[in-house]
Design a protein around this nucleic acid. Structure first.
Lengths: 311, 311
DNA sequence: ATGAAAGCGCTAACAA
DNA sequence: TTGTTAGCGCTTTCAT
């Protein structure tokens, strides 16, 4: 009898002590089966290598923990199908709800998930609002900030390494293209595919370096891609910010490293995690079903990787 | 009837189709309850910010997946008590076994876990062999390599920033001290506490910088700590490797970044993950109970952060 | 090849 | 306050 309402003190202690001695662990499976809830949230994170998620998860755990919810993590290694599987693993264990951090799964798979359990999507907007909440930073605005920052420094040939089919990548790319057009730099739009990873950024940057004229600035879709870009530039003997300025996205701890000193667009990760957990709690505890969207403001953090061209 | 031995094709298809249409998901809790096994491994990782674990987990997932085992992750944010809780969350959901990646929990808590379920400890050796397997790299040997590398370059005042109470940190520290003594550099032993994080490395390096004479080389207990050390050095206007050489541990992707170019001791992370999963599978499937220890060889990867002193 | 019944470890509802 | 009973969704065993 765990946490029963009316049991004598003596008995409770005796039982608890005995349990401890026997190394008893309650079988949460059985408990969950009868209670039809497990007080557990499932969290899918798209990439264990991206430090962006660590802080978001801290926020989730804080908020969930305060409401006495446990958290279970899983990852699908950025592969849509593996992500679906990873989410299934979570769902089949009857997590009361799931938070999907920047998943790459299709809209269809997303709707399947949302139909199965309360779902909060982070880092990406669902096309259909069907019964799931979204927490994002304003990607188009963030991309615009990056472009305006570089243009403000005097750059015109500003290129972009995308996040491929990653969460929010399309919005960042569109934001870049629109900002360029709006600033009258439409003819200088130059886009290379990446995929939110270091390797992807490296390949994207190589592609950009093969084009002429060379860009004087590059906006990478996230910090990881910016690091890959940095490697490609260095390898090609292109100095940063001397020859090419660079701006990333996420403002992870990597961007802040002295040797990297990457100008980056900050997302309020911790806050996003907290918000995601709150939204999920609302759905699970208060039974809210009307979908909600939270769009947070990004913020540019200028560092050493961006400077006027030809500087 | 999932995967039954003898059901007519027609029926099977019909049922499967209907299930799909209804969005049916099997309740693995119920299944696990009756089968008394869940075909799920729990994995605790100590730090989501440390890219070291990403590859180890890939290895685990590969090997476990091949044997049709699912994987569930959790983290305790490097706090011993939270780790215990995170492991409980895993265990109470009846994971068939757990893999603990560099946990900070006490030996006692570790034994509790091992008593509850098949357990494989990675990154740290258990004092008692009681029914759990260990997969580690040879930390004393790795630390020795770091010291010998630096001494070979001509350094004598080689200091060490520790990993605090982190997994394997004590062994790395001892390896450092012994190697220094063996090389006749005992009087130059200088140790500052860190904790396997960037912040810890930063603080440890600040401490070292406050001592006189300054070291000409620093061996940091892991790459994250080395990054923190790098920040502290840069802040103090100390150039690397000009004034001070630096060696890390883990050889994460961070060490390989061109701007960082950190000499580091490599651990075969992927292999360690594969091995851990294999050991756990042996315990779970073949019922092995005799404990095993796998000690893998580390390897020094020299990069730009280490050079002869006064260079 | 299919249906019926028992039971996994737990909690909820009720009776004593 | 305590003991008893039923049943969560599934698999397994035994009849049919």
């Amino acid at each position: 009898m765990r946490g029963a309402p009316s049991v004598s003190e003596a008995r409770r202690e005796a039982v608890l002590r005995a349990a401890r001695e026997l190394g008893y662990r309650p079988n949460e499976l059985a408990r969950g089966l009868v209670q039809r809830r497990t007080r557990t949230f499932g969290v899918l994170l798209s990439d264990l290598r991206n430090p962006f998620f660590a802080e978001a998860i801290e926020g989730i755990k804080e908020e969930a923990g305060a409401a006495r919810y446990r958290t279970l993590l899983n990852t699908g290694d950025r592969e849509p199908e593996r992500e679906v599987e990873a989410i299934s693993t979570l769902l089949e264990r009857q997590t009361d709800g799931v938070i999907l951090l920047s998943p790459r799964i299709t809209e269809e798979a997303l709707e399947d998930v949302a139909r199965s359990a309360p779902t909060v999507l982070v880092g990406r907007l669902a096309e259909s609002h069907a019964g799931l909440d979204c927490v994002v930073n304003d990607d188009p605005a963030g991309a615009t900030m990056a472009v305006e920052h570089l243009a403000g420094l005097g750059h015109r040939r500003i290129a972009h390494v995308t996040g491929g089919n990653g969460a929010g990548a399309a919005d960042r790319r569109r934001g870049y293209e629109r900002a360029m057009t709006r600033l009258g730099l439409g003819e200088h739009i130059s886009v290379a595919e990446g995929d939110y990873t270091e390797a992807g950024g490296y390949e994207g940057a190589k592609e950009l370096l093969s084009r002429r004229p060379l860009p004087t600035a590059i906006f990478a879709a996230n910090d990881l891609a910016a690091l890959g870009t940095l490697s490609a530039l260095e390898e090609a003997g292109v100095s940063v910010p001397g020859d090419v300025s660079l701006v990333g996205y996420d403002n992870t701890n990597l961007a802040a490293l002295g040797q990297i000193s990457l100008t980056s667009i900050d997302q309020p990760r911790h806050r996003m995690g907290v918000l995601a957990a709150q939204l999920l709690l609302e759905r699970v505890e208060s039974g809210r079903t009307t979908p909600r969207r939270e769009v947070l403001k990004p913020r540019l953090v200028a560092r050493g990787s961006s400077a006027p061209p030809g500087g």
